[in-house]
Design a protein around this nucleic acid. Sequence first.
RNA 1: GCCCCCAUCGUCUAGCGGCCUAGGACACCACCCUCUCAAGGUGGCGGCACGGGUUCAAAUCCCGUUGGGGGUGCCA
Length: 461
Amino acid sequence: MTVRLRFSPAPTGFLHVGSARSALFNWLYARRTGGVMVLRIEDTDVDRSRPEMIAAIHDNLRWLGIDWDEEYRQSERFEQYREVTKKFVDSGQAYYCDCSREDVVARVGENAGYDGHCRDRGVEPPDDGGAGDGDGDNRSVVVRFRTPDSGVTAWDDLIRGRVEFENEVLEDFVIVRSNGVPMFHVANAYDDLDMNITHVVRGEDLVNTTPRVLLLREAMGATEHPVYAHLPLIVNEQRKKLSKRRDDVSLGDYAERGYLPEAMRNYLITLGWGAKDDIEIRPIEEIVERFDLADINKAPAFFDIKKLDHFNGEYIRQLDLDSFIEQSQSYAGDVDGELYARLAPFVQERVRRFDEVPATIDWVVGESPQVEPKDWKKVMTKDGVDKVLDLVLERLTDVTWEPEALADAVLGAGNELGLKSQLPVRIAVTGRRSGMPLFEPMAELDRSVVLDRIKAARDRL
RNA sequence: GCCCCCAUCGUCUAGCGGCCUAGGACACCACCCUCUCAAGGUGGCGGCACGGGUUCAAAUCCCGUUGGGGGUGCCA
């Protein structure tokens, strides 16, 4: 039997890092086993689904290098789900319920779930034939699945081991909304069965829906279930599940900030999985070779931007110069292409994200930035800085305007005075204490600009 | 409240009964390299949550405690 996995996002927004990681683990296992990767858009909630998000999800997945072999949309399969729920009602495995949330709360309180009130009340479907016809006019009647009162529903999770739920605590859950649209459980259970999904790899936040899906599958006549693997969640510094509201989770935003997809992909994989040989940064082919769902960790993992930045820096430095230039130039702003190409080798060595490019080259392509007060104080208030700048000014006036000569002039002036000259000149010309090597980029500036900047600094002392 | 899950350095991980005086990575600190920074190199700091078992032997198995998290919708 061929391995078949599916990634099933709901198109309610852009892909976020948690979903991306789920997609990745599915994809990794599919590629590892020579299996099939299915992309299934779970858009059963008509009100929340944004069809335009589907294209965005495609883009995000492709950006990460994830491809898929088959694609489905649940909204195109409503008829099949209705057929199933109809059968459930006909056979007594499900029933109509007209309780409002308020009714239930009044009966059992806030903390309890549905009490099975309508199980045997024989609630009639509305005149139009009942929930499930999708015409939306039977607002208050839903279909609920009759869950067993005893026994356990359990599965052997590939990551977590055996997980058991007492059927007693499973309430009769809604399988068809009052607008006639089936709930995701039904679509999910039906599709996994219909599409012969063999491995379900998803976030741990879905564990508690698994017994429902298992029960539904059994009601549909399934005798076997897929292997489930519930991934540990990705959490923020507060150890809470990454959320759209409070955390930076949009994959697209990371792309915009200048993270390389290879770096993001590689980093995401280390959240919950590590190679036996301790090597973290490596080509995706090697990861595919080594990957196994069973080796994934159980504990939640913190999304550590600092480590992501490190990974990204590594990948940026691995780029050959031409592709670095090609990929980073759009971040550089309005710069002459040839000038940027000359600066690029210095830039590539120190940025960790492309969005750091502007602040690296700004003093060459624009005005010298404002000096941070504490940098000024640290460098320019030392004794002798005035002498250094005076002498440098003198030497720079008629020196040959090329890097080597500039270095000799500036450093030579310092040596002559027995003082450090590089840092004061750097502050004067670049506005910063750190950055690219000074002299090559400095040679790109006009002599007058450099002299003016140094004079201005000298005057400010 | 009820249900489910989790627990190795600050963080991500290796470890799946003896190879562990617990390894690697990020971060941090120091030194080297060096026109600054970064990169690189070297070294350092730092952990098996706690308590009981089981065993000749436990980070590894079992139980409990504590601490976290997830779920509890006519979202997925």
